[in-house]
Design a binder for these strands. Structure first.
Length: 366
DNA sequence: GACACGTGGGC
DNA sequence: TGCCCAAGTGT
């Protein structure tokens, strides 16, 4: 293996003949093999948009039920624009990357206010919307409006890496720009949306990260990696660093069938989401000190501490080692602004990220 | 450019 | 089991 920084900076564009074969074979294959997915029912730009946001870093099978519920709850761009923030987040609960929902909501409101509810069909306008980056710009413009704009995602980068034996590290942002130049040459005038989707579909179904199904690949005849038997070596990608381990305490405070919940800060991990009161960066050694400091900060007093259990939750970049601690709240002058008593049987009305759902299950189900 | 940002599935 | 991932974007 060559070192990763030795990748060629030159963009070697595919020949006209290769372009021809890829276009024809891929479009024909897509026509016969594409999956029947809910966002392929029509080309409503709003529906395409929602699907593209949900699909970011998220599997198709995971997205489908969320997509169906979301579109049935917010069937039009106007209905989403008019919705309360809480309702939008609640519909996103469990999907992860919650800033996607906030950005989508904000962008949809902008489209209704600035563009009369019509999703823009110009790169300059749509790429300014919150949560719409280079990939989503290309996806919406090509799929919904049949514009010849690249939509280069992880699938496309993997397909191109193999098809043209591109050695660049696909985790580098600069690599995507190179891939976009190739895509611009490859996309046919006639059906850019189908072609972009065909590229992604190929990556998802045939040109998979592990064990690619080269024997069934419609572009096998022009694939350089296959010709060289190197399909398992490509694409190149820097190994991810493993999540950093952090000790965390969730505090379980119940009184008269009510429990204290906490609204998380507006920035950072699980921003805006409901949670149990959480002590982050807690040292496991001395709970008392940790709790005293916590009580000082919140201007409250906690007594009768009992450890109720432990829980691990691994985010993409952080590993929470959670201790569930039950406590009683001594009478205090006032509750912190971010805290609220809620009836146990009303917990389901709030949007909790999954890590807190798991904790609640453990605590409530005896 | 590098890192933050969730979750669940597959091997 | 632990690691890699899955239709990226914001900072």
């Amino acid at each position: 293996m060559e070192p990763m920084n030795k990748a060629n900076n030159q963009v070697l564009l595919p020949s006209d003949q290769v372009v021809e074969v890829v276009q024809q074979n891929l479009l024909e294959w897509y026509g016969e093999n594409k999956r029947d997915l809910p966002w392929r029912e029509n080309k409503n730009p709003y529906r395409i948009w929602v699907s593209e946001i949900m699909l970011q870093q998220t599997r198709v099978d995971t997205v489908i039920p969320y997509y169906e519920r979301f579109l049935s709850r917010f069937p039009t761009i106007e209905s989403l624009a008019a919705a309360a923030d809480e309702d939008v987040i609640k519909a996103w609960e469990g999907l992860g990357y919650y800033s996607r929902a906030r950005n989508l909501h904000s962008a949809v409101k902008e489209v209704v206010a600035e563009y009369g509810g019509k999703v823009p069909d110009k790169v300059a306008q749509i790429s300014k919307l919150k949560g719409v980056g280079p990939y989503t710009t290309g996806a919406i413009l090509s799929i919904a409006y049949d514009k010849k704009v690249p939509a280069v995602d992880g699938n496309v980068m993997r397909v191109f890496s193999r098809l043209f034996t591109i050695e660049d590290d696909i985790s580098q942002q600069s690599t995507r720009k190179k891939m976009e130049r190739i895509a611009e040459k490859l996309i046919p005038e006639s059906s850019p949306g189908d072609f972009n989707q065909a590229l992604m579909e190929l990556g998802a179904m045939v040109c998979t990260p592990q064990s690619p199904k080269c024997l069934f690949c419609p572009v096998q005849s022009v694939c350089k990696a296959y010709q060289q038997g190197r399909e398992s070596e490509l694409p190149r990608k820097k190994k991810a660093t493993s999540p950093k381990s952090v000790d965390v305490i969730f505090v379980w405070i119940v009184s008269e069938n009510k429990v204290l919940i906490e609204k998380r800060p507006e920035q950072g991990l699980l921003a805006h989401m409901w949670s149990l009161p959480t002590i982050e960066q807690a040292k496991k050694e001395n709970y008392l000190e940790v709790f005293n400091e916590f009580c000082d900060t919140k201007n409250i007093q906690l007594t009768n501490l009992i450890i109720r259990g432990n829980l691990d939750h691994i985010f993409s970049h952080i590993h929470w080692k959670i201790t569930l601690v039950q406590a009683d709240l001594k009478k205090s002058v006032s509750l912190p602004d971010e805290w609220e008593w809620i009836a146990l049987n009303q917990l389901h009305t709030r949007a909790f990220p999954n890590v807190y759902r798991k904790a609640l299950q453990q605590l409530v189900s005896i």
